[in-house]
Amino acid sequence: MFFALPLASLCLLAVQLSGVRAQANCDRFYAVNSGDTCDAISATQHVSTYQLATVNADKIDPACDNIFPGEVLCLGLAGEDCKTTYVVTDVDTCATITTANNVTLTTLLANNPNVNTQCSNIYPGEVLCTATQIFVGGSN
């Protein structure tokens, strides 16, 4: 009886993982831990906040307040998995981000379509793709 709960949890994880793999050609996976937030997952796993939300749009709501421990998320799709990231600080602008990461504004905005051209809608803790090649839409 002692092993019933852990075994049930493992079975649930296996079912979720197989569903994620079947759902998309996912390059990387992450199992949500208690206390995780989308921005924290993005920062530690080197995936942009936009990419995490987009790849898991069927699971994560816009506020990202519905993830739960044990849930398996896809971190990036084959050919579209940006692993070069930057965590936004409270003093960042488009200019500071592009300069610090040696990336053009055009590429930064292409990889982060949620960001407006003035970067006035970024927030501290948000994780941006700062790769020098364009990943969004698979054009890398």
Rank of each mutant, 00 (worst) to 15 (best):
M1Q: 13
F2G: 10
F2R: 15
F3E: 11
A4W: 14
P6M: 03
P6C: 01
A8W: 02
S9V: 13
S9W: 11
C11W: 11
L13H: 13
V15Q: 11
Q16P: 13
L17Q: 15
G19S: 11
G19H: 14
V20H: 05
Q23W: 13
A24Q: 09
A24R: 05
A24S: 11
D27A: 13
R28G: 10
Y30I: 12
V32R: 05
N33G: 06
S34L: 12
T37K: 04
T37M: 03
A40L: 14
I41A: 05
I41L: 08
A43I: 07
A43F: 08
T44G: 12
Q45T: 12
Q45C: 10
S48D: 05
S48K: 07
T49R: 00
T49W: 05
Y50I: 04
L52G: 03
L52R: 04
A53V: 02
A53R: 15
T54H: 13
V55F: 07
V55M: 03
N56R: 06
N56V: 08
N56M: 06
A57G: 13
A57N: 14
D58V: 04
I60A: 08
I60D: 09
D61K: 09
P62M: 10
P62H: 11
P62G: 05
P62S: 12
A63S: 14
A63N: 15
C64T: 02
C64N: 02
D65I: 14
F68Q: 14
F68R: 14
P69S: 04
G70V: 09
E71T: 11
G76N: 06
L77G: 06
A78L: 08
G79Q: 03
G79V: 04
G79R: 08
E80A: 15
E80D: 07
C82H: 00
C82N: 02
K83R: 15
T84I: 11
V87A: 08
V88T: 00
V88Y: 01
D92F: 09
D92C: 10
A95W: 00
A95P: 02
A95T: 15
T96C: 06
T96G: 06
T99W: 01
A100L: 10
N101G: 05
N102Y: 09
V103I: 08
L105N: 02
L105W: 06
L105R: 02
T106N: 08
T107H: 00
T107S: 00
L108A: 02
L108M: 03
L109N: 03
N111Y: 03
N112G: 00
P113R: 00
P113Q: 06
N116T: 10
T117M: 02
T117F: 04
Q118R: 12
Q118C: 07
Q118K: 12
C119L: 04
N121P: 14
I122N: 03
Y123F: 15
P124K: 13
E126M: 15
E126A: 10
V127I: 08
T130M: 09
T130E: 01
A131N: 10
T132I: 11
I134C: 07
